[in-house]
């Protein structure tokens, strides 16, 4: 079974305090309008991943199980699948969006040929 010290009340208190700090940091970052655009997106993603780690470690006790760490391996595999799913979808849809050019007034073929330096 899991090690005893990771299941104590203090583990949950530390997890709660860190989660509250990270959550408030994210809300203050957006509320104060200190950052905008991509830097803000990266900062928020960083805070979310930190909080993911905090909650997995202090609430779900991931990584404190006995070896071999099957739970951790299943989690790592799920993380890979999720990355492929999310970034793959975004990539495909961005490409589709570009090639469809939803602006109906333009001649799509001509527009793309000009942009991509394609000649008939």
């Amino acid at each position: 079974m899991s090690k005893q010290h990771t299941h104590s009340t203090s583990s949950y208190v530390v997890g709660l305090i860190l989660a509250i700090l990270l959550t408030n940091a994210a809300f203050i970052l957006v509320g104060s309008k200190m950052l905008s655009g991509w830097p803000l997106v990266f900062a928020l993603t960083g805070l979310a991943i930190c909080q993911l780690w905090v909650q997995l470690r202090y609430f779900l006790h991931l990584g404190s199980e006995s070896r071999p760490r099957w739970n951790l391996m299943a989690f790592a595999f799920a993380a890979v699948v999720i990355c492929i799913l999310v970034f793959g979808s975004l990539w495909i849809m961005k490409n589709l969006h570009y090639n469809m050019m939803p602006d109906m007034n333009k001649d799509i073929d001509r527009e793309i040929m000009e942009k991509e330096n394609i000649y008939r």
Binding site: A26, F27, V30, V41, L44, L47, L52, Q55, L56, L60
Partner: peptide
């Protein structure tokens, strides 16, 4: 854990357009 990503991606990134 799922809610962390909902409040970050849906709400916080939702009110700060790219």
């Amino acid at each position: 854990v799922i809610w962390i990503f909902i409040f970050t991606i849906v709400y916080l990134m939702g009110v700060s357009p790219l």
